[in-house]
Every structure is written in structure tokens, then in C-alpha cells.
Simulated scan of single mutants.
Amino acid sequence: MASSSSTSFIKESYQYDMFLSFRCENTRKNFVDHLYHALGINTFKDNERLKKGKNINDQLLKSIEESKLFIIVFSKKYASSSWGLNELVKIMECQKSNEQIAYPVFYEVNPSEVRKQRGPVGEALVKRKWREALTEAANLSGWDLRNTADGVIYRSFALL
């Protein structure tokens, strides 16, 4: 009698063994470059793998989906990068749903600063919130008073 074995449906072939997520300004030329070369495996690193003329965000998110493992290099400026934060969201989604594994590395930043979003990490997030709030507010229909007489704007407010 033949026995049936349960087959795992975990994706066994990935385009990349590893995806490196980091904030380029303060880690690319030192720690990340050394790590990249030391890994010795098929690793996605943006300046090595991004195709010219293609949408950067789409390529990054697709590469995350196609990577088995992730190294997230948290640094003082990591949270100031919208690219890094988008990558982080996608990495955490993949880790939860696809059995891909993320490994955090805390480079010149305390893990509790990242966890509690304090120190330089918290400061970067606050600045981002201000920027996002300014952008959202500026995208609302409003009054541009650069070339308007004061009386015209007062009449506009009276209509509210």
C-alpha cells in the first residue's frame, strides 16, 4: 500500500537568497557594502540590481517578494527614508504570510529606539509626519493669497 505524504507548498525557488534593506546615506559605503560581499550568496542590493528605465518602487517590492531572507539594517536615519519604510512594510507582510524570514541588524542604534520609536528613529518619524501633513494640507483646495486683495479673501470666508 502506498503511503501519502503531505507536501509543503512553501515556495522553494526564489530569485534572490537575500534582500538587503537599508538607508543608503549612512550605511551603503561601509557596513552594507562589506556585508553584501561577505554574504557570498545571491543578494538583492538596489545599486547592483535595479534596472534602468523601470519603476524603482515596483522593482523593490517585486524583489522582496522574490527573496527568501531579509536583512533589515536599522540605523539612525532608516526611518527618514520613505523607500526604507515601504520596504519594511512589504518585508513584514511577506514574513507573516510567506514564511520568508527577516533578520534585523541594529547599526549604531539601540533596538529599543526602533521598537519604541524614540531617539533618532522617533525624530525621523516625527519629521516624516510633518512632511506628510504639509503635503496633504497643500493638496487641499484652498486660497492662494499671493495676488489677492484682503477684502476678496474675507468675502470668501463669509461664504463658508
Rank of each mutant, 00 (worst) to 15 (best):
I101Q: 11
F19M: 15
I71W: 09
A79K: 00
S67M: 01
T27I: 05
N110T: 06
R23G: 00
A137N: 14
Y36D: 05
N42G: 05
L50A: 03
S4G: 11
H37L: 10
R131K: 15
Q95E: 10
Q95I: 08
C24I: 08
K90M: 07
R128N: 08
P104I: 04
S6K: 15
L60W: 00
K62D: 06
Y154G: 10
K90N: 11
R155S: 12
A149H: 14
F19P: 10
L35K: 04
L85T: 15
V121L: 13
L69S: 09
K51Q: 11
E99Y: 14
I64T: 00
S112T: 13
N139S: 15
E136P: 06
L85K: 08
K129H: 07
E93A: 03
E87I: 09
V152Y: 12
N26K: 07
S82Q: 11
V109R: 08
G84W: 01
V73E: 02
F70C: 09
S8L: 11
F22S: 00
S141L: 13
A124T: 06
R118G: 04
K45H: 02
R131A: 15
H37N: 11
G84Q: 01
T148N: 06
K116A: 07
K96T: 15
T43K: 02
S13G: 15
E66L: 07
Q15I: 02
K54W: 01
L125I: 13
Y14M: 10
N30R: 10
T27V: 03
N98S: 12
N47I: 05
A137T: 14
I72C: 06
Y14G: 08
V32R: 03
E99W: 13
M92Y: 06
E136R: 14
R28T: 05
S67D: 04
K52H: 15
V32A: 05
L20F: 00
M92F: 10
R146E: 11
K127M: 03
C94M: 11
V121S: 02
P120V: 02
V89Y: 01
E48Y: 13
S82R: 08
G53A: 11
Y107H: 09
E25I: 06
K45R: 14
Q100D: 05
K29H: 08
N147K: 08
L61A: 04
E12S: 13
Y14N: 11
L125H: 03
K116Y: 05
S67P: 00
S80N: 00
G151Y: 13
A124C: 12
L160N: 14
V121R: 00
E99L: 14
E108I: 07
N55P: 09
P120W: 03
R128I: 12
E108N: 14
R131Y: 14
G53L: 10
N86Q: 15
E87F: 00
R118A: 09
Y103G: 02
Q100Y: 01
D33C: 12
A149S: 11
M92Q: 10
F22G: 00
